[in-house]
Structures are given as C-alpha cells and as structure tokens.
Computed example of a mutant assay.
Amino acid sequence: MVKLYKKNVYVQTIKFDNTAGNHQAIIEFTGWPISVEYTSDGVQLRVIRGAYSVLVAKLGELIVKGADGSLRVCTREALETEYELVE
C-alpha cells in the first residue's frame, strides 16, 4: 500500500527593497557579491554566483534560501502558497 508523508521545511527570506543597508544585508544573507541595475523597466538586483549563474530579483521580490543553501527568487504571494510564516 502506498502512503504519503509530509515534511516541513524551513526557508529564510530577505526582501529586495533598495533601501539603505539592504544591499549589504543581501550580501551577508547570500554570501555572494551583488550588482544593482537601474533600467527602464525598474530596479533589479543581481546575485552573482558565477560567470554563468546569476540570480535576478526585481524590486519588492524575495530572495529565498532553502534548507540546503540553494537560492531562488519569488514574490511574497507565491511563497505564502507553499509556506506558512513563522514569527
């Protein structure tokens, strides 16, 4: 008989809001260098993990660090469909 098990996984997040101190906080959170670009589409942040591995976050998006240390970007709404906020 097949059984289904659920595993709770904690993730950490930081929001890119382009305020004073936010850039340094993201560097400390990710452990990688960043660059900030001001384009005609708005402000975006790049986490530079390697020459061909760049994570791009737009203003207001969250950088999510998984339990295994992997990084991804998503909106708060998308994150709340997968995870429950722990205070």
Rank of each mutant, 00 (worst) to 15 (best):
Asp17Cys: 06
Thr13Ala: 09
Val73Asp: 00
Val56Asn: 07
Lys65His: 02
Thr81Cys: 10
Tyr5Ser: 10
Lys3Phe: 09
Ala67Leu: 03
Glu28Gly: 13
Trp32Thr: 08
Thr30Ser: 07
Glu82Asp: 06
Leu79Pro: 02
Val47Ile: 13
Ala25Tyr: 05
Arg46Tyr: 09
Val11His: 01
Met1Gly: 11
His23Ala: 15
Glu28Thr: 14
Tyr83Ser: 03
Val73Asn: 01
Glu82Gly: 01
Asp68Arg: 07
Phe16Thr: 04
Glu87Thr: 08
Lys58His: 13
Gly21Ile: 13
Thr81Leu: 08
Ile26Val: 10
Ile14Ala: 04
Val86Lys: 06
Ile27Ala: 08
Val43His: 07
Ala78Thr: 07
Leu45Lys: 03
Val64Cys: 03
Gly60Ala: 01
Tyr5Asn: 09
Val56Met: 06
Arg49Cys: 11
Val2Cys: 06
Ser53Thr: 11
Glu37Ile: 12
Leu79Ile: 04
Met1Leu: 08
Gly50Lys: 03
Leu62Ser: 00
Lys3Glu: 08
Glu77Ser: 12
Lys3Leu: 10
Val11Thr: 02
Gly31Asn: 10
Phe16Cys: 04
Arg72Phe: 02
Glu80Gln: 08
Ser53Leu: 12
Leu45Tyr: 01
Val11Gln: 01
Ala25Phe: 06
Leu4Ile: 15
Lys58Thr: 10
Phe16Glu: 04
Val43Arg: 07
Gly42Arg: 04
Glu84Lys: 12
Ala57Glu: 01
Gly60Cys: 04
Ala67Phe: 01
Gly60His: 05
Thr30Met: 11
His23Arg: 12
Ala67Val: 05
Val9Tyr: 05
Glu80Tyr: 08
Glu80Ile: 10
Glu82Ala: 04
Asn22Thr: 05
Lys6Leu: 11
Glu61His: 09
Tyr10Ala: 13
Ser53Pro: 02
Ala51Gly: 11
Leu85Arg: 08
Ser70Leu: 00
Leu45Phe: 03
Leu62Thr: 03
Asp68Leu: 00
Lys65Arg: 10
Gln44Gly: 03
Ala20Trp: 11
Arg49Glu: 15
Asn22His: 03
Gly42Ser: 06
Phe29Ser: 10
Leu62His: 01
Tyr5Gly: 08
Ile26Trp: 02
Gln44Tyr: 15
Ile48Gly: 03
Glu37Trp: 13
Lys65Met: 02
Tyr38His: 15
Tyr38Ser: 15
Leu62Phe: 00
Ala51Pro: 13
Thr30Val: 15
Asn18Gln: 11
Gly69Gln: 01
Gly21Ala: 10
Leu4Ala: 07
Asn8Ser: 13
Ser35Gly: 14
Gly42Glu: 05
Gly42Asp: 05
Asp41Phe: 14
Ile63Met: 03
Ser53Ala: 14
Asn18Cys: 09
Ile27Lys: 15
Tyr52Lys: 10
Val86Met: 08
Trp32Arg: 09
Gly42Lys: 04
Ile63Arg: 00
Ala57His: 03
Asp17Met: 07
Thr13Glu: 07
Val86Asp: 00
Asn18Ile: 12
Leu45Met: 05
Ala51Arg: 12
Asn8Val: 15
Leu59Asp: 04
Glu28Arg: 15
Leu85Thr: 05
Tyr38Asn: 14
Val36Ser: 09
Thr75Leu: 00
Gly69Arg: 00
Glu84Cys: 06
Lys6Trp: 09
His23Gln: 13
Arg76Val: 04
Val54Tyr: 01
Ile26Asn: 07
Ile27Val: 15
Glu82Phe: 02
Ile63Tyr: 02
Lys65Leu: 02
Val54Ile: 15
Ala25Thr: 09
Leu71Cys: 01
Val2Ala: 13
Met1Ala: 08
Arg49Asp: 05
